[in-house]
Amino acid sequence: MTPRPAIAEPRWARIVLCVLALVLLGLFLVLPLAAVFTEALRRGWGPVWQALSDPDAIAAIELTLLVAAIAVPVNTIGGVAGAWCIAKFDFPGRALLLALIELPFSVSPVISGLVWVLLFGAHGWFGPWLQAHDLQIVFALPGLVLATLFVTFPFVARTLIPLMQEQGRSAEEAAATLGASGWQTFFRVTLPEIRWALLSGVLLCNARAMGEFGAVSVVSGHVRGETNTMPLHIEILYNEYQFVGAFAVAALLALLALVTLAAKALLERGGPRGSLAA
């Protein structure tokens, strides 16, 4: 006879809980995802291919990748710097900085977009100055990048802070007593110790950067082939009753997210045990 585990629930309770979890998971996660792919492929691969090779679709895909390619590295550097400050130093305003890092999580994405319009739009604070210098931020690439940066800033920092706090400062102090400079300490000690959590944070940040809708929608201006990212392009196609096209682009976007998550899962398995405290 196997010993009863100390926290064993009755058998029926375990079954009910598991079934409940699986049903909810299936209903709210798997089913919609499956629907996206089936809708896209309803008339076979031909229309899907056609929708994806449409110049506007290609422009949207390129724009999405470009925005992510700018926003993710910037937020990686910013996130590491923010997490480093918060986890390794005591300074006045530390709690405030921590709250600020989480701000994008708590405000609506629409607001995250609107602030840039208020700042840089034609009637915004810096609008006249920008116009005088012939600089376009809102309804152009810089606006899309700014909105994406704002929305995705917390991912890297939030993944790193708990881990870096748990690891403490003594490894860095040891490096200092051994003669290492600040940069040497960062690249030889701090960065390697957080590398798995960092990768996971970067991938999450990337998934969100490609998928962001609300904030980007506000600053985009919806110029087809110019300022439409993939999520915006999907919405336009859908509103025009081009369901196959909408679902084809949606399927591609979902695929990108799934690949990102799969990469993250693989990395977590490959990383040393316990290195992903976040």
């Binding site: 490894a171 040891a174 051994l178 003669g179 390697p192």
Partner: peptide, 26 residues
């Protein structure tokens, strides 16, 4: 000045050899 920390503060991602070599490599 050599310092031995209470909980050793070894570099987790480095082998024993690399830990000891650190002060020379930097």
């Amino acid at each position: 000045i050599g310092f031995v920390f209470q909980h050793y503060a070894l570099f987790r991602h480095m082998t024993v050899f690399e830990n000891v070599a650190f002060g020379l490599r930097v």
